[in-house]
Design a protein around this nucleic acid. Structure first.
Lengths: 143, 143
DNA sequence: GCTCCTATTGATAATGATTCTCATTATTGT
DNA sequence: ACAATAATGAGAATCATTATCAATAGGAGC
């Protein structure tokens, strides 16, 4: 996992500016993995009501380009974000939306290399129903 | 892989009608895995110029609901489709767009079960650069 | 700390993918 | 063949994301 404290230096190293907005968005992503752009936007407004949605998308794109954050669908048709970390599988509960990160049980780089691929990024997800939701067939919608 | 010939019976069993459009779209998906909705639409028009894009999306949604086809992003921000088949990893070349299907090297169901998840569907992708594209750094854009 | 240069922001229009609406058409049971 | 109604086609509507552009604010130099 990338260290939050090193981000300002990292941005400057890339010739980018360290703005209030970028700091705020990074804090939100670090503290809440798996949020989507709208959810990040809402939380950001709670702190800085003047922030715009465009800034959220622009910042997410920048951070993803810098490989600081990763995006994934998590069973839905839009992106969710988290700080970049070692290859892992997202176990997504289609009932309650819970997401569990589990290390990939094999060497992904070697797996790709064996097939002539130089792996740049991975997205592994397993969508299903978690224990809790299987236990209570009635309630248990998205939190 | 689901057998194309059994699809009409499968549709009727679900109380759905077997239309020219559905037959055509199934043929296209079987013959060309990993196409997106627009590509499927274009090929379909080649055979039946009267077909509408809405029908393509409706049919894709229906077939996915019936677990006849699966969708995945393949490194892009929209869905690509293929007949449902056993769990596999998509190796996607970000340079030429080539997609390679490789069996998942571990037992996905058991993997999920061990974490309290009842796996319904999986999406494993590894985005990188294939041998061919690494060989020729100049050309080699999307086919 | 003050200024200037320009990257970044905010508001909003634009785009792209997908879904919805509704009148028309075609599939299926009889 | 006929009627009942599910499915289609065309286009409007929606949702996520990107582009545009004037206003604002980092940060390098003084």
């Amino acid at each position: 996992m990338i260290d939050r404290a090193s981000m300002p230096a990292r941005l400057r190293a890339e010739g980018k500016r360290v703005t209030r907005e970028r700091e705020l968005l990074l804090d939100i992503i670090v503290a809440n993995p798996h949020l989507d752009a709208t959810e990040i936007f809402e939380r950001a407004r709670g702190v800085n009501p003047r922030i715009g949605l465009a800034t959220v998308y622009r910042t997410l794109r920048l951070l993803e380009t810098l490989a600081v954050i990763d995006s994934s669908g998590l069973g839905e048709d839009h992106s969710h974000y988290e700080m970049h970390q070692k290859d892992h599988v997202h176990l997504v509960c289609s009932e309650c939306g819970a997401v569990l990160d589990v290390p990939v049980p094999f060497d992904v780089r070697a797996f790709g290399r064996r097939r002539g691929f130089d792996a740049r990024l991975t997205r592994f997800e397993l969508v299903g129903v978690c224990d809790a939701c299987r236990a209570e067939p009635h309630g248990g919608r998205r939190p």
